[in-house]
Design a protein around this nucleic acid. Structure first.
Lengths: 197, 197
DNA sequence: CCATTACGCTACGACGAGTAGCGTAATACA
DNA sequence: TGTATTACGCTACTCGTCGTAGCGTAATGG
């Protein structure tokens, strides 16, 4: 029975966060700058988010939603495709910077860890599930037997794909190009065959 | 023709950095605290390292040197072993916190990226090379043919192993236990067979 | 013994996180 | 159409940390 929060302000703040992130990177992103850019008071930010990390997680999570899995005709082509689009996404400064920054913060903050898991990790596992279903329809993979076993496989594959791409591009600091994607896919496909056997 | 820098102070500073890291984590690690713990003046830190990130990279790099690859009799057992010891290392707060923190910083700092690559990544690739040589001696893998191809394989395998373990334990926030290591190893071995074929 | 450099110390400026308090605007509900 | 209730903007503030300046002192090579 009172004034509700402006959803318009929410949107403006998240947009502004991404914009400032692109320009300044994580370390030089200040709450004051976000507030100014969004056209709201700094206090409004703190009324909605506990701090910088949480704000950035929410602002960045949607960026990963642009990842899709168009049907490229074979499991191999699908994997190569998603590897390359994930790498492309990680090429954007605001994505890599903020993803790593919030992951780093999360190592000493359990609540933040949960937020990342819900907003990014669990949301993107859909890609693995989708690719799997499609491959099964094509007859490239056997149908699911045990649901527990299936869930474990999805988790494993997700960590292998996402982990390898992130590690190569951000830690090893080497480019994820078509040639690398092809070799990685060959490795993964061979592994999948062994796993399902 | 003058007073040289105290190497003893260098050591004390690096030790202190690790100690403070354990107690406070990255975000609450202050240069003042490190200086106090090391028994030196804060200015002495800045005379040697440009900032916090560079100091922490140097302090943490040596932690990864404790990783070894004892001969467990088979390639599968060797991989499982190194996966588990890497996961164990990442279990220590100071390792995971500082590794992620410096990687995050490196996304906007090319010099730091180079420092990490030299001090951590390139140093630890020895593990992959060693496991590979050992497996070849056992006849589990074919001998090297093309050196370029070999180098690419080493890079790929390194990113897959390190990436998957880091991603699972730090991003997905799930534990890397013996069961997971076994499944991951099965996947990787299957992939290696396909890669070498 | 002397020039040179490192070191410890104190003090300081700059900046950003996060909070408090107040007046005002917007909305649900009666 | 009021009226209670809550969001909002604004200003001002505390607090902590980074990074630097300047100075006197200690250690070392020649």
């Amino acid at each position: 029975m009172a004034r509700p929060r402006s959803t318009q302000a929410d949107q403006a703040i998240l947009d502004a966060t991404r914009a400032v992130l692109v320009e300044s990177g994580w370390s030089r992103l200040t709450m004051a700058a976000v507030a100014a850019r969004a056209g709201v008071a700094k206090t409004t930010l703190y009324r909605r988010w506990p701090g910088k990390s949480e704000l950035v997680v929410d602002a960045v999570a949607v960026l990963f939603d642009e990842l899709e899995l168009p049907d490229r005709g074979s499991l191999a082509a699908d994997i190569e495709g998603v590897v390359l689009s994930f790498a492309h996404l990680l090429g954007h400064p605001e994505t890599k910077t903020s993803l790593m920054a919030v992951v780093a913060e999360s190592t000493t903050d359990a609540a933040l860890r949960g937020r990342i898991k819900a907003a990014v990790v669990d949301r993107q596992k859909r890609l693995v599930v989708e690719g799997r279903v499609r491959a099964q329809a094509r007859g490239e993979l056997p149908p699911d037997a045990d649901p527990v076993r299936t869930a474990r496989s999805v988790d494993l594959i997700f960590d292998v794909i996402a982990g390898a791409v992130v590690h190569r591009s951000l830690v090893s600091a080497e480019s994820v190009d078509a040639a690398w994607a092809r070799r990685f896919t060959a490795l993964l496909l061979g592994g999948l065959a062994a796993l399902e056997a």
